[in-house]
């Protein structure tokens, strides 16, 4: 891969897939935009999955790494292939700019394709497969919900170009009738509106931020360092509850997701 290509944000999903998968063979079949391989990590044979750009995607609205119809169902298939008594771990490498915005996508049920992917990850987790996601680029909106957000453990590179949000900046500005500048200012004042990974981590949603690596062009040392963090996260996930309760347990969550906790306590008290 050329230096200019690897510098582009849109190729991080592929860059990190290659860095983590190393020499492991890419699995055949499935859409070209869903990379998968079985990789030895910390004594586990981990199913690694990444959604990447494909300029020849048969659905034009899903050529830039978006999660579209084939990607949603393709990810779901790759996850479900691993189901079995061995409880192998699954790693989602996340650099997804959005779900695919298109007329064909809506008509053919992209909501169900995304549901299939989220279902597969959640079902894997509930069955005892450790599910870890590694955010290396963009983790936006429905795309992140489908690919990565159902993980027991969300890891993220501590990198300023990472962007995590309910909607991309330009689109969010149009929909909320705010300027991009206003959105950025608001994000500094109101934590959940920020796009950067450090703000996201303050919400208690990240298991670990991994710093000191080149996110655009990882060296062999960078890849080894991140792989070790993945192995630790897998081991941690294996020994803890299979639900997402850890996201509400950290000091960060207690401070910045206090309402999420209070609602659950009050509901439980009134449930009867």
């Amino acid at each position: 891969m050329s230096a200019t290509m690897s510098a582009a944000l849109s190729s991080r999903g592929r860059t990190w897939f290659e860095a983590i998968a190393g020499g492991a063979a890419r699995l055949d079949g499935g859409p070209a935009s869903v990379l998968a391989a079985d990789v030895a990590i910390g004594g586990d044979t981990v199913r690694v999955i990444s959604v990447v750009t494909n300029p020849d995607n048969r659905f034009p609205r899903a050529r830039e790494g978006e999660v579209g119809l084939d990607e949603g169902w393709g990810v779901a298939a790759r996850v479900r292939e691993v189901f079995g008594p061995e409880k192998r771990a699954i790693l989602a490498i996340v650099d997804v700019p959005s779900q695919a915005y298109g007329r064909a996508e809506e008509l053919y049920g992209i909501h169900l394709a995304c549901a299939a992917a989220a279902d597969a990850y959640a079902s894997a987790r509930l069955a005892g497969h450790p599910v870890v996601s590694l955010v290396v680029g963009r983790a936006l909106s429905g795309a992140f919900l489908a690919h990565g957000y159902q993980a027991n453990r969300v890891l993220a590179l501590d990198d300023p170009k990472i962007s995590i949000h309910a909607m991309g900046k330009q689109a969010a500005a149009r929909v909320t009738k705010r300027s991009v500048e206003q959105l950025e200012t608001l994000g500094e004042e109101i934590l959940p509106l920020a796009y950067d990974v450090r703000s996201f981590a303050k919400l208690g949603l990240v298991h670990e931020l991994i710093g000191g690596v080149d996110a655009d062009a990882p060296s062999a040392e960078d890849a080894a360092k991140v792989t070790a963090r993945i192995a630790d996260a897998i081991a941690d996930a294996r020994s803890r509850p299979r639900d997402l309760s850890s996201r509400l347990a950290s000091p960060e969550a207690r401070e910045n997701r206090a309402a999420s906790i209070r609602v659950r306590e009050a509901l439980a008290a009134q449930w009867g």
Binding site: A115, I164, P192, L244
Partner: peptide, 20 residues
């Protein structure tokens, strides 16, 4: 969108809860 990342986090919780 006025609660952005906390709405998205809650949505992931909703998906997890339905599947469970």
């Amino acid at each position: 969108l006025q609660e952005a990342n906390l709405g998205l986090a809650a949505m992931a919780d909703v998906h997890a809860a339905v599947v469970a």
